[in-house]
């Protein structure tokens, strides 16, 4: 995609956000991160999550679904902005800084990981992918 003035602006904001460091995850988000860390550990995977890996995962085109190639297809390039479903309904921003109630209900988070990972990747996400994703959103 060509850089529009808007995405350039968004990238600028990203840089600023990165410079000021990740916004602290609240206790509810931390509980969910801990849950995925435990799952990752049990699966023998690294349990230290990385917002940078989460960001790469968020933007990657997985080449499974034509309509929904990436997470950012619905959640937009800048997760602090509202997204849009394929059917046209607005989605509240995913960034915890924009919507502090994000990633606070494990059942809800699991439901959407199950759905969206299957839609975009054609498979379930690993605990590490989920942890990185939440870490990225908590840093925004």
């Amino acid at each position: 995609m060509r850089a529009t003035p808007r995405s350039t602006f968004a990238a600028g904001l990203f840089a600023v956000a990165a410079a000021t460091g990740p916004a602290a995850a609240g206790p509810a988000q931390q509980a969910i991160l801990d849950h995925y860390a435990a799952e990752a550990k049990a699966a023998g995977a690294p349990s230290a999550f990385s917002a940078a890996r989460g960001e790469a995962f968020f933007r990657a085109k997985h080449g499974v679904s034509a309509e929904s190639p990436s997470c950012s297809a619905c959640h937009t390039a800048d997760p602090r902005n509202p997204g849009r479903t394929r059917a046209g309904k607005p989605i509240e921003p995913m960034a915890v800084s924009a919507v502090p109630t994000r990633f606070t209900d494990l059942a809800e988070v699991e439901k959407w990981f199950r759905r969206n990972c299957n839609t975009v990747l054609g498979r379930a996400c690993t605990p590490a992918e989920k942890g990185d994703f939440v870490a990225f959103m908590a840093s925004r």
Partner: peptide, 12 residues
């Protein structure tokens, strides 16, 4: 629901 118009909309 797990293949709902190209999306996974499954529920428990």
């Amino acid at each position: 629901l797990s293949d709902h118009f190209g999306e996974d909309a499954s529920l428990d």
